[in-house]
């Protein structure tokens, strides 16, 4: 017994220095772990603070005028105390939908091209091109739209050029990388055997793509489109520069339009009181939109996991 204890003491001394040293080292390890945990907690804290502060600023106004009239009333005249974001709400949806309308088919085609059709070298170059497209800031896209696309529409299609169409075009370009990258990854992730079996059964290359690969990558492709939608709804600078920003419901795609994001950035500089609260309330709508989209993606992921089991 005695020997055992002495031996224990001795070996601990031998391997780890004296007791005080060991305690100190353990303490340092513990402190570092807590510090790392704290930095991980920052993300949670950030989301909590963002929700708290934006809701505190905007929610009282929404509850005062009612969520329905806030979202759907077309009367936005802050000077008269009318805060209906109906036109902007519809404006955001219209511009986003029009952008998706052309960007989704093009992105999926390019994603399939990169994953299945392009020679390896070309696929790599395309990946670099898409990365660069993703890296260009929105204000540069907006500037390009303002200088090239808006005059082009004005001169060739009529109207003043600042329009739903200009917004949809620029926004569509901006969401290409999001949709291309995620759907390409999900196509690449389809097990090789699927493709080989299909080809072995005598299906042509394109039959294999359309009936085997794309269906197998479906959930990834849907995630890609949802993320693209989120990006489009939330985009601000490019849209505000090319859509003309009239707070009306556009009759056709050559009409100007104002989105919810544009409304915030245009008026935040001088808004006070209820007007400012209404802009924060618009921020709540955007925030809730994104959280719901994220939720859908997470549900999709969970469904996919269950399918795999």
């Amino acid at each position: 017994m005695l020997i055992d204890e002495a031996g224990g003491e001795m070996s601990r001394d031998y391997f780890a220095g004296n007791d005080a040293d060991l305690v100190r080292r353990k303490l340092i390890e513990k402190i570092i772990e807590k510090l790392l945990m704290f930095s991980a907690g920052i993300s949670i804290l950030a989301i909590v603070l963002i929700s708290l502060f934006i809701f505190a600023q905007g929610l009282p106004l929404i509850s005062e005028i009612g969520i329905r009239s806030f979202l759907f009333s077309l009367d936005w005249s802050p000077s008269r105390g009318e805060f209906g974001i109906g036109a902007m709400f519809i404006g955001s949806l219209v511009v986003t939908f029009s952008a998706l309308l052309w960007a989704v088919p093009l992105s999926l085609t390019v994603a399939i091209f990169m994953a299945e059709i392009a020679p390896a070298k070309i696929g790599e170059i395309m990946a670099g091109i898409v990365e660069l497209l993703a890296g260009i800031p929105s204000v540069v896209y907006g500037f390009f739209g303002l200088i090239i696309i808006v005059p082009f529409i004005r001169n060739n299609l009529g109207g003043n050029g600042m329009s739903v169409l200009a917004g949809a075009f620029i926004l569509g370009i901006m969401i290409l990388p999001t949709i291309i990258n995620i759907s390409r990854d999900s196509i690449v992730a389809v097990p090789r055997e699927y493709k080989e079996s299909s080809l072995a059964l005598g299906a042509t290359y394109y039959q294999t793509i359309s009936r085997v690969l794309v269906p197998a990558a479906k959930s990834g492709i849907i995630t890609a489109i949802i993320l693209g939608t989120g990006r489009a709804i939330g985009e601000t600078m490019a849209v505000v520069m090319v859509t003309g920003n009239a707070a009306i419901i556009p009759e056709n795609i050559l009409f100007p339009v104002r989105t919810m994001t544009s409304n915030i950035v245009l008026e935040m500089g001088y808004a006070v009181g209820d007007h400012q609260a209404a802009l924060f309330a618009t921020g709540i709508v955007l925030f809730v939109f994104i959280v719901v989209l994220n939720l859908v993606i997470n549900i999709l992921k969970a469904v996919k996991r269950n399918e795999n089991i």
Partner: peptide, 8 residues
């Protein structure tokens, strides 16, 4: 995913 204007 939060839009930059909301961060703003």
């Amino acid at each position: 995913g939060v839009p930059s204007i909301v961060f703003g």
